[in-house]
Design a protein around this nucleic acid. Structure first.
Lengths: 137, 137
DNA sequence: ATAAAGCCTACATATTTTATAGGGTTTATG
DNA sequence: CATAAACCCTATAAAATATGTAGGCTTTAT
């Protein structure tokens, strides 16, 4: 399951996407809208910013804003940033690969094979669906 | 990511599947084969047994054994039993549904829509792949 | 100068996962 | 029938992770 961090990030991005005509949006407003702790959300937005997914303006009258087109923000990127691997097993993760310690031989592991399939189907969706798709509805 | 519990369960079932000619298999042997704590695995096997996925024989000379054909044990069932929901969000889980508390309206939530797709593609694989498929390789 | 707002780091709390402990019960066997 | 092997059951402990808080720093409009 996605962590709250990731869910909050997705909601925050959605909110920013919906308020693109405004120059900046306050953390406060997003937090209030979704009933999220201000400080917790602050950390999340900061992380998104550091990852180059959004921009900010400091000081009075400041706030956050999208620096990319929503269609250029794939959901996979947001999830990986905040939750880490998308795959169901470390041994099939593309971005966070690690061998499974209880597995003797990856090459002959049937679980590995199935989880590669799951990963591929999942990524087929999450790499192609973007913030723009979420904004549509 | 799958929990260790689930991974251990899958490995244990695989082990049992590979030793079907023997009447029973000891917890000890499975634990040793995969470097799992005996007692931890004991709890897992017990849970699998209670769920009707395997049988056991008590006392000296006892042990565990499969009571179903491997082809009749879908991976989704094992995962759900030990890990709970397969879906990425509670609000799209078929077996463990709960509303997301940060979401105002499920019907118009774009995240929800995407995650339903992910769930469906994932289940398409995990409901159809069974222990038999894992045993093949 | 002041107040508003994001930046940053560290800490605190809660929850979940993983593992252990220890006795109970059943059963084959000599 | 005594014994040892093996699963059964419940409770608790330890570790890891996720969630949330605190508090001061820096930047900026007015």
């Amino acid at each position: 399951m996605l962590s709250k961090k990731t869910k909050y990030a997705l909601h925050a991005l959605t909110y920013l996407g919906k308020h693109r005509e405004e120059k900046t949006v306050l953390i406060h407003d997003i937090a209030e809208e979704h009933g999220i702790s201000h400080k917790f959300l602050e950390n999340i937005l900061l992380e998104l910013k550091k990852a180059g997914m959004l921009g900010s303006k400091k000081g009075k009258g400041g706030g956050y804003y999208l620096i990319k087109e929503p269609k250029d923000i794939p959901l996979s990127k947001v999830i990986r940033l905040l939750d880490g691997p998308i795959a169901m097993l470390p041994c099939v993760s593309l971005n966070y690969y690690e061998p499974c310690d209880e597995c003797k031989d990856e090459a002959t592991c049937g679980i590995n094979k199935v989880m590669i399939q799951v990963r591929d189907e999942t990524l087929k969706i999450l790499e192609n669906k973007t913030l723009a798709d979420i904004l549509k509805t």
